[in-house]
Design a protein around this nucleic acid. Structure first.
Lengths: 122, 122
DNA sequence: CTTGAGGTTCGACATATGTCTATGTTGACA
DNA sequence: TGTCAACATAGACATATGTCGAACCTCAAG
């Protein structure tokens, strides 16, 4: 009974159709469903530690960073892991294991959609 | 003892220097202080009901809406009031009483800053 | 001054969230 | 095979959050 396991890869969360996202905020009132999907992303960015982690990944050379590169945010390592998981589940980050390290990068399409949704207000 | 009160106007919250906001997310990792300030706004938009209220104000004719115009979001009226207060405290909305009604409008500078912060990622 | 409508505040409550320590899992290397 | 380093998961706990009904405040109109 050695390898019954079926590839317990990272991100088994299934980002639940997160991509199309949202109309501009000024176009019309959001429906309940649109608000539910969109709020999930804002909520993910609504924690200071997560925002620092996200910014650290987004600004890191090469567009990606391993956890060890960005873990210096003042909380324990399991807490960092927990927040990165939340960002993944919100569809804002993706992760990939290479050797000992796990690399995170931002999901560009989703973030661009968020920006567009807010940008038309200025 | 009739009018000892000193103008109990709306918004006694003092938006605590919310305006300058934030560098682009890709420029460099956020400091703890930047993250704290910015996360407050994202957090405010991270609830479905609040996002619907915000979108309703942002998309309303004339750039403003009274509470009665946007209260149909499936929660009680006190809850609507509570969420609008959160959006005010986050610096995203301003309010003004005119006669019987209270009108809300979006704070354009803050929202534009948020959009810019996200936009450079696409 | 009384009444009623539009909004806010209060107090209570259940649930969600952020954090930790302890423990697992995975891969590299001896 | 054993060990170590990098991350993830599990469980526990205190606090924050969203929600409601009830009570309060403001204004306008009798």
């Amino acid at each position: 009974m050695s390898n019954l396991k079926v590839l317990p890869l990272l991100e088994p969360e299934a980002p639940e159709a997160v991509v199309p996202c949202c109309p501009p905020l000024t176009e019309r009132p959001f429906t309940a469903e649109e608000a539910e999907r969109t709020a999930r992303m804002f909520k993910a960015l609504g924690d200071p530690v997560r925002l620092r982690l996200f910014s650290a990944v987004a600004s890191h050379a090469g567009g990606e960073a391993c956890v060890c590169d960005i873990s210096d945010v003042g909380v324990s390592q399991p807490t960092v892991s927990h927040h990165l998981k939340k960002l993944r589940e919100a569809g804002l980050l993706t992760s990939e294991r290479r050797g000992t390290w796990v690399y995170y990068r931002v999901e560009p399409s989703v973030v661009a959609a968020l920006g567009k949704m807010l940008g038309n207000l200025g």
